[in-house]
Design a binder for these strands. Structure first.
Length: 594
RNA sequence: GGUCCGGUAGCUCAACUGGAUAGAGCAUCAGCCUUCUAAGCUGACGGUUCCGAGUUCGACUCUCGGCCGGAUCACCA
């Protein structure tokens, strides 16, 4: 039973009957808290039809709706806004339907497939705060699409080749003394990252020295021995030199082991990994085809270009004069490969920072010019940077917030606060660990997801993320309290209570929560359409707020009337379920006690 | 300089895509544990929605012009 839909139909009928014309698209919105009712019809646009003022138009429609005696029980008109109260009987029916649906909010499969790319790090440095936002966003958008009925494929492209990894390789060869993660106990990605930093240090020193000997900066940067070594490694890599490949594979394997550990703790997963070393040549073929088809053109020096001046952009190079590919070429190749691997996907979502907006604009245009219809369904999920109070994160200034460190800090903070509140009585060490992990990561994920993705956001590591107020743990806590109640009532986790009794008169605080619960499916749709987990994060928060108001004011277990008690238990259980489902698409777990 | 994005309470963020008196949290202050978990609830304080025009019944939202911040405009990825 979908109240929004039924109400819309009923109002359309009423308008047609009253004014003799089909209604235009009706503006129906949730009623502001300060007025009575749950749905509000904006009457201004209807005055042309009714030939009456907005107030009177509202009254006439309201009377008609109440007269129908089905859905609407009461109405009031304030300044051209028709506020409608849905009958409690209808609301109880809504709740009953909700409880009868095993996976309320989860849509039936719609037969469509979509791919979501996220994470996609370079292999020369450990993951940091910016990657956390990327991973949590991408994972959540994928889960949201799954919830609205799509088959979703989560993938990433691992940027495993290029000068950056060669720099780490050079430094490790020179200064590593054979250090391995096993030998030194340093996590693989951290180890490789360490030598990337070593490279930078040595490089700078060498440049300075050469400058001292009279070279220009430009010359010195080219002539620094360690840089020449890195470039040499890159050339050898491209020439498939066995020694170089061996070193490259070894160091990359360390990085992957390190990343895996980080991903596991983050709670994200991937169906398939793409490696740039496998795909970087593929785009060429496609570019050559495009060239033959006249989509691209060749310049005198032999380089291949696309002309986007007709789209208000520039000309972009796709193949260098020496025939090697650029970034764009690789991305074309990767896209082709993915559609070959998953022919049914209708599009791709690329979770990549907003500094690459131009790149993706160009990529999608090119794919369209190549004649692929799915280019229109490709979306760049562009998100803003995470700033520190000191400004941007700068690896050179050592202000990068490491992903592993941050997760660890959040969890130990959560552990400290949990212990301080005396919540751990009667729990085993293992249970406490599981709980604090859930709380710490929940706080972090919620913090990063509640903000509109496209906005840049501020993260202050010194004042660690709060566990009170508009936070993940607040929502987790609301869930845990409900589960605690159900436990006391001897109900197990999976129980879905039927709504019993014939008491159709709801308390206002109960009705508020049911109204909120009924919005869950449409919120999921909004979130999918906008590619925004923030929609769900903010929705679940207001749901928890509404429920807590009810919980505070109205007894459940202590309610003497058994029908009412059963009703409130059922309705509390429904709330817990929606909280859990909503948090699940955010990638956040909820505990049964905390 | 061109293009794109952002600017909302002291701070961090919302505002159902043009609707009602712009809402939450944090912080500050004042209350609520002898009833289901106080990581909670109630109240107070806090606003020229960057500025200026325009569009209309109605603008944080749309248009134009400024101001501030960021990104981008590589044969880098």
């Amino acid at each position: 039973m979908n109240i929004d839909h039924l109400l819309r139909l009923e109002i359309e009928d009423a308008v047609a009957a009253l004014f003799g014309q089909a209604a235009p698209v009706l503006q129906i919105q949730p009623t502001n808290q300060e007025f009575e009712g749950s749905h509000t019809l904006v009457c201004f646009p209807l005055t042309k039809l009714s030939k009456k003022g907005p107030e009177e138009t509202g009254s006439v429609i309201g009377e008609k709706l109440v007269g129908n005696g089905k859905l609407v029980s009461k109405f009031n008109v304030v300044k051209g806004f028709l506020n409608l109260s849905i009958s409690d009987e209808a609301w109880v029916k809504v709740l009953a339907d909700m409880l009868a649906t095993a996976t309320y909010g989860q849509q039936a499969p719609n037969g469509k497939e979509i791919m979501v790319e996220y994470s996609s790090p370079n292999t020369n440095k450990p993951l940091h705060l910016g990657h956390l936002r990327n991973n949590f966003l991408g994972y959540s958008v994928a889960e949201i699409y799954r919830a609205v009925g799509y088959t979703v494929h989560k993938v990433q492209i691992i940027n495993d080749r290029g000068i950056h990894i060669c720099k780490s390789m050079a430094a490790w060869t020179l200064f590593g003394n054979g250090e391995t993660p096993e030998g030194s106990g340093l996590k693989g990605d951290k180890l490789v990252g360490k030598y990337y930093v070593e490279f930078d240090k040595a490089y700078k020193a060498q440049v300075k020295e050469l400058e001292g000997k009279g070279m220009t900066t430009e010359q010195a940067e080219k002539e620094a021995p360690i840089m020449k070594m890195a470039v040499d490694l890159l050339l050898k890599w491209e020439a498939r030199d066995p020694e170089t490949l061996k070193l490259w594979k070894m160091m990359n394997s360390w990085v992957y082991a390190g990343f895996d550990a980080t991903y596991r703790r983050m709670g994200v997963d991937f169906e398939k990994l793409y490696y740039e070393s496998d795909t970087y040549l593929l785009g060429k073929e496609e570019v050559m085809k495009g060239l033959a088809a006249g989509v691209f053109f060749r310049k005198d020096d032999g380089s291949v270009w696309v002309d986007l001046t007709g789209d208000g952009l520039d000309q972009k190079v796709l193949l260098r004069a020496d025939g090697t590919s650029v970034y764009m070429t690789q991305d074309i190749g990767t896209a082709m490969l993915r559609f070959r691997d998953f022919p049914k996907i209708e599009g791709q979502v690329y979770t990549v920072g907003n500094e690459q907006e131009y790149h993706f604009k160009v990529l999608f245009l090119i794919l369209g010019k190549l004649g692929y219809a799915w280019a229109k369904k490709c979306y760049h999920l562009s998100y803003g940077m995470v700033d520190l109070p000191s400004g941007k994160m700068k690896s050179r200034e050592g202000t990068v917030v490491d992903a592993d460190d941050l997760m660890e800090e959040m969890v130990s903070d959560a552990a400290a606060q949990t212990a301080e509140l005396g919540k751990t009585e009667g729990m085993s060490k293992e249970e406490v660990d599981t709980l604090t992990e859930m709380i710490g990561l929940g706080a972090l994920k919620y913090f990063l997801l509640k903000v509109d993705p496209k906005k840049r956001m501020l993260f202050d590591p010194s004042e660690s993320i709060s566990l009170q107020g508009h936070t993940g743990p607040f929502i987790q806590y609301t869930h845990a309290r409900i589960r605690g109640m159900l436990r006391k009532a001897n109900l197990t986790t999976g129980d879905r209570l039927p709504v019993t009794g014939d008491r159709w008169e709801l308390h206002e605080l109960e009705r508020n929560v049911i109204v909120r619960l009924s919005q869950f499916p449409s919120k999921l749709e909004d979130a999918a359409r906008e590619y925004s987990p923030a929609v769900i994060a903010n929705y679940i928060y207001t749901l928890a707020q509404d429920y807590n108001q009810f919980y505070q004011a109205i007894p459940v277990l202590n309610e003497p009337d058994s029908d009412r008690r059963a009703f409130r238990l059922a309705f509390s259980g429904a709330t817990a379920d929606v909280i859990r489902s909503g948090m699940r698409v955010l990638g956040i777990g909820v505990p049964d006690r905390m």
